[in-house]
Design a protein around this nucleic acid. Sequence first.
DNA 1: TAATTATGTTAAGAAAATCTGATGGATCGT
DNA 2: ACGATCCATCAGATTTTCTTAACATAATTA
Lengths: 301, 301
Amino acid sequence: MDRLSLRQLRYFSALARFLHFGRAAEACAISQPALSMQIKELEQSLGINLIERFGRQTRLTAFGERAVGAIDAILKAIDDLDSLARAAQGNLVGRFRLGMIPTIAPYLFPALIEKAHEDFPRLDILLREAVTAKLVEELEGGKIDAAIMALPIDDDLLASVTILRETFLLVRSKSQANAPIPAPETLKNMPLLLLDDGHCFRAQALSYCGIGANAGRHAFDAQSLSTLVRMAAAGQGVTLIPEMARDLETRGTDVIVQYLNDPQPERVIGMIWRKANPMAGQYLRFAEMVQKATMISRTSG
Amino acid sequence: MDRLSLRQLRYFSALARFLHFGRAAEACAISQPALSMQIKELEQSLGINLIERFGRQTRLTAFGERAVGAIDAILKAIDDLDSLARAAQGNLVGRFRLGMIPTIAPYLFPALIEKAHEDFPRLDILLREAVTAKLVEELEGGKIDAAIMALPIDDDLLASVTILRETFLLVRSKSQANAPIPAPETLKNMPLLLLDDGHCFRAQALSYCGIGANAGRHAFDAQSLSTLVRMAAAGQGVTLIPEMARDLETRGTDVIVQYLNDPQPERVIGMIWRKANPMAGQYLRFAEMVQKATMISRTSG
DNA sequence: TAATTATGTTAAGAAAATCTGATGGATCGT
DNA sequence: ACGATCCATCAGATTTTCTTAACATAATTA
């Protein structure tokens, strides 16, 4: 009282091709009675005869002839599924929902998407831009597959890999070009322009200056590095930006960009994903690709 | 080291719908471990993970999401095959290669095809017109599925069913309207116009007159009843035609058509097919339909 | 016409796949 | 920390499928 099985369809397809039980059985690498039985089963479960046994000859019935097309189409669809799987084995394929924090996305994404088209041609990357906490939440909730952000991320469910380290650069207006490079303690007492609360880059900057994250300095907080740089250019204070933002944000503006003194502040950028995600191996390869993409964009920039 | 099975696809489809092993198993009417195992098998035979087990949640991987569409399409194709079979169970479906002898085809086919469109709407009837011997040969050779001809047919491999009996009519030119209806013996000595050798109707006519089939009278033999009637109209002799040919062949011609005296000559028309053909039941139904079609055409004619 | 060959079916036991129920480990909510 | 939920694993039972051997039938040959 079972439904039809793929095995039966395969056997029938062979039989329809050979019109000979023995040869079809041989092609299926089974004995001939086994094939006979399966064909009989198939006919029974379809409730209709497919084969006409006529003395020594074996022919398809009218319905059998009709069915063989449909059945071959099904078998082809199975094969397609199989090769789809085989093709997808090594590579990421399909939709890849990637999160990035706002202090990375605008600078990394263009180079990343370009290289991804080369290395993962069948991958559709969907970008989600949000702050770290939000991305982690969405990652755990299955809303995104991976995220690129500043490490470390302390979460038992997530795995991570480092992509690059980069230093922070001091940005101030041209009028301050000759002022000395401030030490962290000095910076602490200067009008330091920062991103909104929630951005990890804000916390990193404050940490460099030795200020706790909760020091209530909300007056000049901005939503983007772009705004910070413009404010600095207008002489409203000094700010820090990550190296990767340099070209895009400071070119053509009235600021000077300088390295700080050692030990320079820096951030580690990496990719994270759910440990449970079985694509871990491919994510590592993706992260490697991102790393290469950043090197290329640095060289050319 | 087996290939994928439909069972696995069904289970996976359920799992993709519920995203819950327990409920999917319930929907499949199996235990949860059974489903787990089959999913695992499927993943192994595809060589790629479909499901991401994440703590308490069950999600599809990117590939899983991609596969579920293809798999559902396959399952739908299977269902379609199934309902195709179910629909075909009662009815003839698809190509039906039907033979007819030349003294039946032109008169029966129009009515038959019309009624067949009503009763067997999904049947494509392909007509093959040939003499009895040829049709029997083609039937046994699997070139056609059934044939309508004069019975009896003496062949162990073939089954037959009677569709109708019909009498032969005397056809002669109008100038002979007042001559008496000839007895068979009289007919024997008249210029009797006949079909070519090979047409069973020729043999039947000769038999009525008490002449052996091999009596060498080839002079006026014709290829069609239509020609015979025209020859009779031209006063070249008398001929016999089957009742079903009356309307089509004699209307508007210069002949008179008359019944012969009892015992009237007649022929039995039936359908034959290979005994081995499992569609026998449906062929009977088809023959019944043909019978009705002839009654309708007689009534209206 | 009887033996032979080719072909497919039926039958019985063996092998393989699949299922169930019990068990265990992990996660989540309280 | 405890109980509940959920999925994986395991061992044994069940079902399906396969193979070999025997049988039936039709075509071929002697």
